[in-house]
């Protein structure tokens, strides 16, 4: 397993159930509760966020606010994290689509560079609370 790395993944809300479905062989350790799951996974080197979501069988429409190592990496409607490559020791926190982080409580927080670039290019500079259309 020398070509593998360990990644810590937290799933919040109803998506915690996907913590049960991941291939046993990839699991170093896990705790799956109704409201959250804490997973320690052994993934192939070079895996991306998209690979991880496939392994979890987590549908994109259920995935909400996402953190990589404490930096905001994606929000509903701004999925800039899919191609981000994971590294040994990384921590991912993925919330259900229903989660929220209003702008005034994230103003000045750490952002992943890819998301930051995406926000910079928007006319609103990323100061909205939500980026999905109603009922999306």
């Amino acid at each position: 397993m020398s070509d593998r790395m360990t990644v810590e993944v937290w799933l919040y809300g109803p998506i915690s159930r996907y913590g049960k479905e991941i291939d046993e062989e990839l699991v170093q350790d896990r705790r799956v509760e109704r409201s959250y799951a804490e997973l320690h996974l052994r993934l192939p080197e070079g895996s991306t966020v998209a690979h991880l979501l496939d392994l979890l069988r987590l549908p994109p429409e259920e995935k909400g606010i996402t953190f990589i190592n404490g930096k905001l990496a994606a929000m509903p409607g701004v999925d800039t994290d899919r191609d981000v490559e994971l590294h040994d020791g990384d921590r991912l926190g993925i919330s259900h689509r229903r989660s929220m982080w209003p702008f005034q409580y994230r103003f000045g927080a750490s952002l992943d560079e890819t998301l930051k670039d995406s926000f910079r290019q928007r006319k609103d500079r990323g100061i909205h609370h939500a980026y999905t259309k109603p009922d999306e």
């Binding site: 606010i65 953190f67 404490g70 926190g93 229903r98 982080w101």
Partner: peptide
């Protein structure tokens, strides 16, 4: 978000941050 989880919907988010 608020009607389901209340304002405590922020706990996991702010903790991850």
């Amino acid at each position: 978000g608020l009607n389901t989880y209340g304002t405590a919907v922020l706990v996991n988010i702010i903790n991850e941050a």
